[in-house]
Amino acid sequence: MITVPATFRQMPRWWHDESGRAWLDRLPALVARRCEHWGLDIDGAPLHGSNALVVPVRRGTQEAALRFSPPGDDLARECAALPHWDGRGVVELLDSDEAAGVMLLERLNPSRSLTAQTPQRSAAVLGTLTRTLAVPAPETAPSTHEIAAGEARSATARWEALGEPVPRTLLEAGIAAAGRRAADDPGHGSVDGDLHDQQVLAGTRHRWTVVDPVLLRGDREYDVGRALWSRLDELPTDEDIRGALGAYVETAQVPLERARDWVLVRSMSYLLWGLEHGLTLDPPKCRRLLELFG
């Protein structure tokens, strides 16, 4: 049986989640039963992010990764997203059991993510990936147009409830950008709504492969703000930030104005969400982007 890493047990998700901690206790037995059911052999020590456990396995000579998600996670959404792209820029789904919260995935290299690249290089790769992923999206996929409209409607009330934590001018810059993105036709291309460098790993089919995608429809610049604030400590000057955004825009082949709008929308949204949830590190990064591009 595997041993659940202590670092996984220490993740904030489980601090106030008694059922989640019980699931952690059951994981070794769940892994053993799933390996027996699918004819898998464990091929290394388990790995994890903040929510899921990943066990390297083999099925005969085929290398794979067995991913377990805790009860309550929306595995159906991811199980629908992966076949939609069918391995085009994203990890291949080899098998799944949504009810059990288990997926069998193509094995990638967890020790090599885009975080090892410079922020400018990472942004350029992410821009290229957005073009790879921009196949026609199903009409049932949530639209970036609708997301922007929702942000424009809710931002002021959230800002007021938080005691007006940033100047109104910054809030208004975010709302104006959300209004522009809600007014424009976003098109029908597929978008990964969770695309940032920690979600891109080295692989064998592709040099860089997306994991855990969230399928949206519309503007593929949707997550460029995340690409910036997640590496902001490595971008000390305003010119460094503009350079990373420019690298993304060039490879994504999208209008700079639209990319700037999404930086503002997402920075405003995440700043408010972060303050609502007691975060201390990320909201100042979002404020810096609002001040620079607003």
Rank of each mutant, 00 (worst) to 15 (best):
T7F: 07
Q10K: 12
R13S: 13
L24R: 03
V31W: 01
E36F: 03
S50I: 06
S50P: 03
V54L: 11
V55Q: 02
V55N: 05
P56N: 03
G60E: 05
A65G: 01
A76H: 11
A76C: 06
E78Q: 11
A81I: 03
L82S: 04
A100T: 01
A100E: 15
A100R: 01
V102F: 01
L105D: 12
S111K: 12
R112D: 13
T118P: 00
R121A: 15
A124E: 12
T128V: 09
T130E: 08
T132D: 12
S143W: 06
S143D: 13
H145V: 10
G150Y: 02
A152R: 11
R158P: 14
E160M: 14
E164S: 10
P165I: 01
L170V: 08
G179Q: 14
G179F: 04
D185S: 04
G189C: 07
H196P: 15
L201R: 13
H206L: 08
H206E: 10
P213C: 06
P213Q: 12
Y222T: 03
Y222A: 02
V224K: 00
A227E: 05
L228E: 11
S230I: 10
R231L: 07
G246P: 15
P255D: 15
E257M: 07
D261W: 04
V263W: 07
R266C: 06
M268G: 14
Y270V: 13
L271G: 11
H277G: 08
L279V: 06
T280R: 11
D282L: 10
K285P: 05
L292V: 08
G294Q: 07
